[in-house]
């Protein structure tokens, strides 16, 4: 019954899917896998301890927290808000794209503020709604679309740029996991190979958001006016 060893994979998939306590699910999965593989209890404890210690590097990002804490108390969020508020007199798509750019650059420097809470709801979504309703009142359906698109833009920027920061949890996890699997890679090379997707995501999302302007009756500049004739 060699395939019993896959019990750990079953536990982790079901545990996460059913939203059970994540810490306990991961530990139970590790214990179950090792026991089924015929590892004795003392050896199991040693294996857990050794595997955890050898992966301490994944948590190196904790070292960046005091600095983020200090600048957060001294107006990190407020400065970012001030910068974003300068995005006036733009089309909905342009506001979204400039926010995407700001989000990607900030992520590359390790600034991962909770975008949905701190920027999308209080700032980006209302600004896009204001820009879209310059000529005509928005329907409830359009408002829902704007909210969804604003949240989506934040997620695109956050996901595809976070691996540009060498001390991010994701980059450190990849480096440490690859080392455990016997194929060590440097965190800085992971950053290098994360650049293409960050750029591609920016380009594709920009086109997508540019297209979004067509949903609304707004002045899109001379070119689109000519098209209306």
């Amino acid at each position: 019954m060699e395939y019993l060893k896959l019990i750990g994979i079953v536990i982790i998939i079901l545990g996460f899917a059913f939203k059970l306590d994540t810490i306990a699910v991961v530990i139970v999965s590790a214990v179950a896998t090792a026991l089924v593989a015929g590892i004795s209890v003392p050896d199991l404890l040693t294996l857990l301890g050794k595997s955890f210690i050898e992966n301490r590097v994944v948590s190196l990002f904790f070292l960046t927290l005091p600095m983020i804490g200090v600048i957060e108390r001294h107006g990190l969020k407020q400065s970012a808000v001030n910068a974003i508020q300068k995005l006036q007199n733009l089309t909905p798509g342009r506001i979204l794209n400039l926010y995407l750019l700001i989000r990607e650059v900030a992520c590359a420097f390790g600034i991962t503020l909770s975008g949905q809470v701190q920027f999308v709801r209080p700032l980006i979504s209302p600004m896009v709604q204001a820009a879209a309703s310059a000529k005509e009142k928005l329907t409830p359906k359009q408002i829902d679309l704007i909210k969804g698109r604003s949240a989506a833009t934040d997620n695109f920027g956050n996901f595809y740029a976070q691996n540009l920061f060498v001390a991010s949890g994701g980059v450190l996890l990849m480096a440490s996991t690859m080392k455990s699997l016997g194929h060590a890679v440097e965190p800085t090379s992971i950053v290098l190979y994360s650049i293409p997707m960050a750029v591609i995501t920016f380009i594709i999302t920009s086109l997508y958001n540019h297209h979004f302007d067509r949903q609304f009756n707004i002045d899109r500049g001379r070119k689109s006016e000519a098209n209306h004739d």
Binding site: K5, G8, V36, I39, L173, S176
Partner: peptide, 30 residues
Amino acid sequence: MVRSMGTAGILPQLLAMLGAVFTASGVGEL
């Protein structure tokens, strides 16, 4: 900062540990 990160902060390292346990138990090959 550490307290607001909570248990989510230690999850990546625990997952890396799980990966190492999988490797030691031969899950990958299986």
